[in-house]
């Protein structure tokens, strides 16, 4: 069984992102980039399925600029067998990314596609579901448990208020939630080995899809700031303030 794992290059989760001074976009000059954390979980799950003998090949794919090769190498170091970069000059919107991924998946014909549930840059939470629609596959989003049984996958999903278990026919799209697994770190020998693994780079223009943006970004501003309040000295004073000043408890 072949597994395709689409990943994304994003700003490292420790970076505090700010708007540019002219508020035209976010300021990404000289910030540290990394693989989206949910994508690391997706790679880990695919690699574990391979280690368990369920999967035979894991293919990491991304749609992004040339710099995304760095994150594909990370995926290879974590255990993916080969990588595909659909190269673009600019960052695409989720629908365009899903269309590009659909082309790759039609060609690769995997049994399973595992993606992160959202990228921590745009926080859109769309690509996996869109990809499922474009391919006509079933979808199991926000997975905290995944098991493969013949031609179906059984997936436990994190939903508001609890857990839901569904079965999806393969091929299917699974998106990862935080608790699915704890990703490993790449070892030095595996980082060295990853440099020799195959990476196929294709321009997005060759796919024959419409990637024109549908949204216009008019501005990016900092969020309304909260003023730090006061420090109280005791629980008694705190309760007094909440009752008499803030009037939020009675």
């Amino acid at each position: 069984m072949k597994i395709v794992v689409p990943i994304k290059r994003v700003v490292d989760y420790n970076v505090k992102v700010r708007p540019l001074s002219d508020q035209s976009d976010v300021d990404l000059n000289n910030v540290k980039m990394a693989m989206n954390p949910f994508c690391e979980i997706a790679i880990e799950e695919a690699v574990r399925l391979k280690e368990a003998g369920t999967a035979t090949e894991v293919i990491a794919v991304t749609v992004g600029t040339s710099a995304s090769q760095e994150q594909l190498r990370t995926a290879l170091a974590l255990g993916a067998d080969r990588a595909v970069l659909i190269e673009t000059d600019v960052l695409l919107e989720p629908l365009a990314i899903a269309k590009a991924l659909a082309k790759v998946i039609e060609k690769e014909a995997p049994k399973l596609v595992i993606l992160g549930k959202q990228a921590i840059d745009g926080d859109n939470n769309q690509t996996g579901q869109m990809l499922a629609a474009l391919l006509g596959y079933g979808q199991a989003t926000f997975a905290s448990e995944l098991s493969i049984d013949g031609d179906t996958a059984s997936v436990t999903r994190e939903i508001d208020g609890g857990l839901q278990t569904i079965k999806v026919n393969l091929p299917a799209i699974v998106t990862t939630d935080l608790r699915l697994n704890e990703p490993r770190y790449a070892s030095l020998p595996n980082i060295m080995k990853a440099k020799k693994k195959e990476m196929d780079i294709q321009p997005v223009d060759g796919l024959g899809i419409d990637v024109a943006p549908r949204l216009e970004l008019l501005s990016v501003e900092p969020p309304a700031t909260r003023q730090a309040g006061i420090k109280v000295d005791s629980v008694e004073e705190l309760v007094g303030k909440l009752k008499n000043e803030a009037k939020v408890i009675s």
Partner: peptide, 23 residues
Amino acid sequence: ATTFGKNVLPRLSALIDVQQISE
């Protein structure tokens, strides 16, 4: 934008060729 809406709407969005606006 609950787990229900987040699950269903992007699928619809792609079916009708629309770029969704989230949250």
